[in-house]
Design a protein around this nucleic acid. Structure first.
Lengths: 141, 141
DNA sequence: CGACCCGTGTTGACATGTCAACATTCGCTT
DNA sequence: AAGCGAATGTTGACATGTCAACACGGGTCG
């Protein structure tokens, strides 16, 4: 029994550690200000990027989540008036409400700042280019 | 109001998406075989890499987790006889039990295989080198 | 000594995520 | 049109994670 894990697994595990190391402080800073949790913010951002409204299954796909999780979360967010859900042919469409947009306006600058400090600034331009390429590749495979 | 999120945040968000996209299938495959959840496997692997035993706070640091989470998880894992906890000057030391080692032996090959297919194979050698560099940098900053 | 302070870990209440089962709707086939 | 299957969401029970409060055990300094 060696004391090392094989190469692919090792790459995955260290990547995971690095990801956690970046995520933790960003989440801490972003959630400190607003009354949004990080997953809630993800939903709002994705919704925003989709133009303010999106089908629930599309949202789930974009986020890489499963339907159930999104459903529960949206139920909570609907109760707090961040979003609405409306039936649509073939499913449900979710739309940002004013309260959701306001929350976004408050949180995005913090997110931008945290992401810059904990991710961008930790890398040099070459790393950033490489990371973008890697991300693109992983998302299209 | 634009329809785009700024650069650092955008990098962070797409990275997060890519990470989720890789994590989901790996977790699905790894947990399908064994009766270990993914966090439990992480604990066992980290413990293994530390030589079979480690202080709880060290473990938490390695994993990038908070003490409470680890404590709860270890309580559950202790009940299932994967690990033991023993008091030590200045804290608690956790050690792998046979059942834990066995679970590792079963899961690691699957993990290796999944990680290779979903991560390594999706990237070319240059990407892999870049990712390793990025990870190292993020973990030491 | 004895009164802190700080790092560690645990606990219980609550928030969130997961899983399996179910409802609904749409498209396809006949 | 009627029936069927696949895709979409929801629900409730349970697993897991988070937060705030507490407990304990060293250091350190008066």
């Amino acid at each position: 029994m060696s004391t090392r894990v094989e190469s692919a697994a090792e790459l995955w595990l260290t990547w995971k550690r690095a990801f956690e190391a970046v995520r933790a402080p960003i989440v801490a800073e972003v959630t400190a200000g607003s009354d949004l949790s990080e997953p809630e913010l993800s939903v709002l951002v994705t919704l925003f990027e989709a133009g303010g409204a999106a089908r629930q299954n599309v949202l789930a796909a974009e986020l890489g989540w499963d339907r159930t999780r999104l459903s529960h979360l949206l139920t909570r967010m609907e109760a707090r008036e961040y979003v609405t859900r409306g039936k649509v042919t073939g499913g449900v469409e979710v739309a940002l409400l004013t309260r959701g947009r306001d929350a976004l306006d408050t949180s995005i600058p913090t997110l931008e700042d945290s992401a810059r400090r904990h991710l961008l600034d930790a890398l040099d331009p070459e790393d950033v280019r490489a990371l973008r390429r890697i991300v693109r590749r992983l998302l299209t495979s």
